[in-house]
């Protein structure tokens, strides 16, 4: 096993992890000064947020994909998704666009093998979400 270090991963660790796996990874700084990572999978951008970091190390990550549908998405479909499909929760934002979100715990007890497995699950579920609601 490859344990994740005490306290979790830094943003730089996460960028390296993505890039070694062949993913793009761009660090983005919000107006608030907080940083997150922007990447791509299956042709759509996704964000990796790292709430609650201490001394630069982050014990968990949130993977978030938001789809722009210009108000065309039927938000009533999302309850069925959350009822039926495990791993990722779906919701709609303030302009009724659908979002998919998965949280991954990194520490304590995390390993890179588990992180990879959960990221693969995120990819799989995202693919189902895109197909089910014809999102691109």
């Amino acid at each position: 096993m490859s344990p994740i270090p005490d306290g979790g991963l830094t943003l730089e660790d996460l960028v390296a992890w993505l890039q070694v796996g062949g993913y793009s990874a761009k660090m983005v700084t919000a107006e608030s000064g907080s940083r997150h990572i922007l990447s791509n999978t299956q042709g759509v951008p996704f964000d990796i947020f790292t709430p609650g970091c201490m001394s630069g190390r982050c014990a968990s990550i949130s993977l978030v994909v938001a789809f722009s549908t210009k108000g065309k998405f039927d938000v009533s479909q999302l309850n069925e998704w959350n009822s039926d499909v495990p791993w990722c929760k779906a919701y709609y934002d303030t302009v009724n666009d659908p979002c998919l979100d998965m949280d991954i715990s990194l520490w304590p007890g995390g390993t890179y093998e588990s992180l990879n497995d959960q990221f693969a699950t995120f990819n799989s579920v995202l693919g189902k979400f895109i197909a089910k609601y014809s999102l691109r």
Binding site: V20, G22, P45
Partner: peptide, 19 residues
């Protein structure tokens, strides 16, 4: 492997390997 752009992202992406 080198990082991919969004346009070149595979349909079934490779699993990232641990540093």
């Amino acid at each position: 492997e080198p990082a991919q752009s969004a346009a070149a992202a595979p349909a079934a992406p490779a699993l990232p390997q641990p540093p």
